[in-house]
């Protein structure tokens, strides 16, 4: 099992001929991801990645020819939301948008449209998703992962790697790790991912890594309290962040109320989640929960 992606996922890369798209497509192919097509308007008919992957002018054309069901987007910010909408109307069921810097107003519209079409989106501004040893759909270093029974959900890229590394160091592997992104409006939420991991037979525990800003961690925790049977370890970054300042991620800003790190940690604890006060304790906490 695992969630959302596996070795059978048929993947297209939107923005495949750009420098980011090229670089990461090579890495994904090396990991074993089943990339069946690329999309760059105006370059249809060509092939890329040493001639291994055909390029199409539109997602629609690519889907017709390859029956792709999954897309990853490396399109520049001004065009990223439209790329999401294009994938959605072409019948792609899972879209991963890596692009950082997508305008919020664009995302509001895109999110509404994909919800109506029943498309699942991960990101934007995220490292992507990896199902260990099967499919890497993103920019994370695949080699740090080890196959196992822990799911990882995180708003942050390098903090995801940190958590994975700590898990491996205490002898715990992962099923799937998802970077959901640090923007104010994102496709798949922390709660959505918890639901998926709860019903995944191979996942026995979940690490959630949140940060200041928004209510997503709290919604996830409240859902987990009522519905989750598997143990969860939580960490919230930004205990020392000053209010009113955007800490890198567009969504990481304390604007008052329950969106501080302290408030989130308190509510996570109230919901029965094992909270790591220090980032260095994430792995060990999970190990304790699994014993």
């Amino acid at each position: 099992m695992s969630i959302l992606v596996n070795k059978d996922s048929k993947v297209i890369v939107q923005g495949v001929t750009g420098s980011e798209g090229q670089f990461h497509s090579v890495q994904m192919l090396e990991y074993g991801t089943n990339i069946v097509a690329g999309v760059t308007p105006g370059k249809g008919g060509q092939s890329t990645l040493d001639g291994k992957v055909p390029v199409f002018n539109s997602v629609e054309d690519a889907v017709k020819d390859t029956y792709a069901d999954t897309s990853i987007i490396f399109v520049p910010p001004p065009f990223a939301a439209e790329a999401i909408i294009e994938a959605s109307y072409a019948g792609i069921s899972l879209v991963v948008c890596i692009t950082e810097g997508v305008p919020v107003h664009d995302m509001l519209k895109a999110k509404k449209i994909i919800s109506q079409n029943g498309t699942r989106l991960i990101g934007p501004n995220c490292p992507g998703i990896i199902t260990v040893d099967e499919c890497k759909l993103g920019i994370m270093p695949g080699f740090i992962c080890k196959k196992g029974n822990i799911g990882v959900i995180s708003k942050s890229g390098t903090l995801t790697y940190e958590a994975i590394d700590q898990l491996v160091n205490v002898g715990l592997g992962q099923t799937t790790a998802i970077g959901i992104g640090g923007d104010p409006i994102i496709g798949t939420t922390m709660r959505d991912c918890l639901e998926l991991f709860e019903s995944d037979s191979e996942t026995d525990g979940v690490v959630i890594i949140g940060e200041i800003g928004g209510q997503m961690e709290i919604e996830a925790a409240r859902w987990a309290k009522a519905n989750m049977s598997k143990p969860i370890v939580g960490f919230i970054a930004g205990q020392t962040a000053p209010p009113g300042r955007r800490m890198g991620h567009a969504g990481a800003i304390v604007s008052g109320g329950d969106d501080t790190a302290d408030a989130k940690m308190r509510i996570l604890k109230e919901c029965g989640i094992a909270v790591a006060e220090s980032v260095a304790d994430i792995g060990q906490k999970m190990k304790n929960e699994m014993n």
């Binding site: 942050s156 640090g182 940060e211 020392t240 890198g248 990481a252 220090s278 980032v279």
Partner: peptide, 17 residues
């Protein structure tokens, strides 16, 4: 000096701890 916003915040936090 850290790479990534989340890790950068977590680094500030652990310095405080």
């Amino acid at each position: 000096m850290v790479n990534g916003a989340g890790l950068a915040m977590a680094t500030m936090d652990i310095i405080k701890l």
